[in-house]
Amino acid sequence: MNPTLSFFYFLSFLTILSAIMVVVSRSPIHSVLYLILTFFCLSGHYILLNAQFLAAVNIIVYAGAIMVLFLFVIMFLNMKEEEEKFRGNVTKIAAAIVGGTIFIILFGAYRKTQVGTYNPYEFKSQTGMVESLGMVLFRDYLLPFELASVLFLIAMVGAVMLGKREIGERHF
């Protein structure tokens, strides 16, 4: 078998497996660690798809910033030994039916769809590089880019305001 092909299948298998482990593992710390593994696998997929810039950004933003925030909050709240009780079997079965139905519906839709494929003569291998992304981002999407900074400002103010301790409120 072609090494690239087997690497793709191995990476997909690892992604799905670690995503399942995020959902089924009992302690939230293990969920976070498996989620980090999922993000690294997804970064591997991005590199295979020739999107190097987003692979780097995925590791920096998701595995670096967001997951550290999750880990920090989990250790902050000290829930390590607090084994959560899972919901009843009815909820589990209902959730499995909902998820399975969505998967089957989408899968059936894909079977009937022409998704198209690459055009070998107009293919540009530099699509995912910083240069071409920067051209699009700062020419066509400059206003959304600036609005994202406003969004971050609002998120920062909101997070600080929500996390601030009011007078008379207890510490942890």
Binding site: S12, T15, I16, A19, I20, V22, V23, P28, S31, F70, V73, I74, M79, E84, K85, F86, R87, T91, K92, A94, A95, A96, V98, G99, G100, I102, F103, L106, F107, Y110
Partner: peptide, 21 residues
């Protein structure tokens, strides 16, 4: 692949009770 990931996420939202998970 991405549909499978999405469905796993949906099942996680529906089955877990811990807000962080």
């Amino acid at each position: 692949l991405s549909t499978a990931l999405f469905v796993i996420g949906i099942i996680g939202v529906l089955t877990r009770r811990n807000a962080i998970v």
